[in-house]
Design a protein around this nucleic acid. Structure first.
Lengths: 152, 152
DNA sequence: ACATATAGCGAAAGCTCCTTGCGCGTTTGA
DNA sequence: TCAAACGCGCAAGGAGCTTTCGCTATATGT
């Protein structure tokens, strides 16, 4: 089951305007309301669309600072990884966690109010993560751009 | 102008369910529809809520691979940075671009179908970026978790 | 060629939801 | 202490939307 051009247009629009009405979406992709509705429904049911969310402004919410944290664990045993992942997933300031190939084992994307606040997060959460051998934090000076829209 | 507890509850809900109706949201945060509506409107107008979007499944869309690319430029002059940022912002496979403190100048988050596809992106786009002195790509083996929800 | 499945359009019913206005209580600040 | 500002709940109108149904056309495959 794959996507035709119309499906892709629908996804392209929804990736930018998740709250658009079916009526307007139909118009935008040149379909009748009913046909458009069926397609969107299918895209949701089949898992192409995972969620509809509101994106907030990090500055307004006082977390303008992004920090990438590279972490090396002390071992590669499954229990070590599991424990680490479980613990890290409970930290609300960590937005992403990726298991990496190469030097570092994990990369985290963390948001903070400022460097002091990151120090708090570090002390309070990161420093307490289990199985960590090494940790290196890199601060972003400025986010040039950021999108949730995948290429479709 | 700041946020009280109710505003935060509203934002918390909308960060997870961006398409919830005002009626249901009002119920969830224990407000009348009118009061809730007024608050959401204000949060949008004041820029706390930037956008409503649909989040798609990277696997379903055939971009299951995330790559972090660290880039060092050949110089720090404004024109070099501007030219680089302008060029990189036109690559649809690049979802994020951060100007960094420390060793590397920039970190990009790139999505690809697989390593071969990343090779194409590299050859076709990344290798052609202006002012690049050095580039190091790190592949994610697995995304442990990922959220767009800021801590509020 | 024919049956089946797929996907489209149009229309309409019904309903939910947005939006607004008003009066009330509480807080703010002069 | 009193007036103004702010925020809430209630109620209701009316718009706009979702969702379904029947019919048609095109593609699939036997």
């Amino acid at each position: 089951m794959s996507l035709d051009q119309t499906d892709r247009r629908i996804l392209t629009v929804l990736q930018k305007q998740g709250r658009i009405s079916n009526a307007e979406l139909a118009e935008r992709v040149n379909l009748s309301q009913s046909a458009c509705h069926r397609r969107v429904h299918r895209l949701e049911k089949d898992g192409y669309i995972k969620d509809y969310v509101a994106l907030l402004d990090p500055r307004k919410l006082n977390v303008p600072t992004t920090v990438f944290v590279e972490i090396t664990l002390s071992g590669q045993a499954d229990e070590v990884l599991d424990a680490f992942e479980k613990a890290v997933s409970r930290i609300p300031d960590v937005l992403e966690c990726h298991l990496m190939a190469g030097t570092a084992d994990y990369i985290l994307k963390v948001v903070a109010e400022n460097t002091d606040d990151f120090a708090r997060i570090h002390r309070q959460h990161l420093a307490r993560l289990p199985g960590v051998a090494q940790m290196q934090s890199s601060f972003a000076l400025r986010t040039v751009f950021k999108t949730t829209a995948l290429p479709v």
